Lab assay of single mutants.
Amino acid sequence: QSFTCPYCGKMGYTETSLQEHVTSEHAETSTEVICPICAALPGGDPNHVTDDFAAHLTLEHR
């Protein structure tokens, strides 16, 4: 399964590499985005909106 960065649209990330990408490239970004990992999880929330995606990844998807 691969994920797309909700900020810049780059594709092909794993859960881990998406977290690394967001932390390095978009750490200061506070735009509201939908978490693509939550959306892909069975029973996950397809509409989970977060305005601190880097922190959300760290808390929810480590």
Rank of each mutant, 00 (worst) to 15 (best):
S2F: 04
S2K: 12
F3D: 03
F3P: 01
F3Y: 07
F3N: 02
F3A: 01
F3R: 01
F3V: 05
T4N: 12
T4W: 01
T4A: 08
C5F: 00
C5R: 00
P6A: 03
P6I: 01
Y7H: 03
Y7V: 14
Y7K: 04
C8K: 00
C8D: 03
G9S: 08
G9F: 13
G9M: 13
G9T: 09
K10V: 07
K10R: 09
K10C: 10
K10F: 03
K10M: 08
G12D: 13
G12A: 03
G12W: 02
G12V: 03
Y13M: 08
T14F: 04
T14H: 11
T14S: 10
T14W: 02
T14Q: 13
E15S: 07
E15P: 11
T16E: 07
T16A: 15
T16M: 08
T16V: 10
S17D: 11
S17M: 08
S17G: 11
L18F: 09
L18D: 08
L18A: 05
L18S: 06
E20V: 08
E20K: 07
E20H: 06
E20A: 10
E20W: 06
E20S: 11
E20Y: 04
E20L: 07
H21L: 02
H21F: 00
H21C: 03
H21Y: 04
V22Y: 05
V22M: 03
V22F: 04
V22L: 04
V22W: 09
V22S: 09
T23E: 12
T23G: 09
T23W: 05
T23I: 12
T23P: 15
T23K: 12
T23M: 15
S24D: 11
S24H: 04
S24E: 10
E25H: 09
E25W: 06
E25S: 10
E25R: 09
H26Q: 08
H26F: 02
H26R: 03
A27Q: 08
T29D: 12
T29A: 14
T29C: 12
T29V: 15
S30C: 12
S30V: 07
S30L: 07
S30D: 11
S30N: 09
S30Q: 12
T31C: 03
T31W: 02
T31P: 03
E32L: 06
E32N: 09
E32T: 14
V33P: 01
V33R: 02
V33S: 03
V33K: 05
V33N: 05
V33L: 04
V33Y: 00
I34G: 07
I34Y: 00
I34N: 02
I34V: 13
I34P: 13
C35N: 05
C35D: 03
C35S: 04
I37F: 01
I37D: 03
I37Q: 05
I37Y: 01
C38L: 02
C38D: 04
C38F: 01
C38T: 03
C38Y: 03
C38P: 13
C38K: 10
A39E: 12
A39D: 10
A40M: 04
A40W: 03
A40D: 02
A40N: 10
L41W: 05
L41T: 15
L41M: 15
P42C: 13
P42Y: 04
G43T: 13
G43Q: 11
G43A: 10
G43M: 06
G43N: 12
G44R: 14
G44A: 13
G44I: 14
G44K: 14
G44V: 09
G44Y: 06
D45A: 14
D45E: 10
D45N: 11
P46D: 11
P46S: 15
P46F: 08
P46Y: 09
P46I: 07
N47M: 07
N47I: 10
N47A: 10
H48S: 11
H48M: 13
H48W: 12
H48L: 14
V49T: 12
V49G: 07
V49W: 12
V49N: 11
V49D: 01
V49R: 11
T50M: 04
D51C: 08
D51F: 10
D51Q: 15
D51N: 15
D52G: 03
D52V: 00
D52R: 14
A54K: 09
A54W: 02
A54C: 07
A54G: 04
A55T: 14
A55E: 07
A55I: 01
A55V: 09
A55K: 10
A55N: 15
A55C: 10
H56I: 01
H56Y: 01
H56P: 01
H56N: 04
H56L: 00
H56K: 02
H56D: 05
L57P: 02
L57W: 03
L57Y: 05
L57G: 03
L57R: 03
T58Y: 11
T58F: 06
T58V: 11
T58N: 14
L59A: 15
L59P: 04
E60L: 07
E60Y: 06
H61K: 01
H61L: 00
H61R: 01
H61D: 01
R62A: 15
R62I: 14
